[in-house]
């Protein structure tokens, strides 16, 4: 139960940081707005089975959408990374996911290099799908590529900083 509360609190903090801070500071450049709220999905414990993971991802995205006033845009990208997460973890880690218990993806549990790949791939997929959907509505290919790479770099940078400050798994033990 305490685990559930921990995740809910974390979710609220991440979303609040995204909505009240990142969305409000003047953008670094006209098209760079970093997104970080979705790391909530990346940080869920390993043992989560697929169906609940999808539903939680959908709820996460929809709640973010309420604040962005883009119903469905963030939900679609969150559902996509929620769907791909188990496949990627299986690919990167030799162990069965059920053996991990309540531990979370982290630079200690996964190893620094693997965790880096996991973070980078997921961020890229999330941003790619998000910006692809925007691009499909408005066109302009170079704008799309520029926005994708710039936004991904800034987001990953922020996520790494947050990750360095928070030591998640040690508190659990």
């Amino acid at each position: 139960m305490t685990l559930g509360i921990k995740h809910i609190v974390r979710f609220i903090l991440l979303l609040a940081f995204q909505v009240l801070f990142l969305n409000r500071i003047p953008p670094l450049h006209q098209f760079i707005v970093p997104y970080i709220y979705f790391v909530f999905i990346l940080w869920l414990p390993f043992r989560f089975s697929r169906a609940p993971l999808l539903l939680i991802s959908f709820a996460t995205g929809m709640l973010a959408d309420f604040f962005f006033i883009t119903p469905g845009l963030h939900a679609a990208s969150c559902v996509l990374i929620g769907f791909l997460r188990p496949f990627l973890i299986n690919l990167l880690l030799p162990k069965e996911q059920t053996e991990w218990g309540s531990e979370e993806p982290d630079r200690k549990t996964m190893g620094l290099f693997t965790y880096g790949i996991y973070l980078f791939a997921m961020t890229f997929v999330h941003h790619f799908y998000l910006i692809l959907l925007e691009w499909m509505q408005f066109g302009d290919f170079f704008y799309f590529i520029g926005k994708l790479s710039a936004t991904s770099v800034v987001s990953i940078f922020l996520i790494i900083i947050i990750d360095l400050f928070i030591n998640r798994n040690s508190r659990n033990r």
Binding site: L54, L55, F58, P71, G72, L73, A75, A76, V79, L133
Partner: peptide
């Protein structure tokens, strides 16, 4: 299904 729901509401 979830993808469809989100894309439908988006567009």
């Amino acid at each position: 299904i979830l993808q469809f729901v989100s894309l439908y509401s988006l567009f």
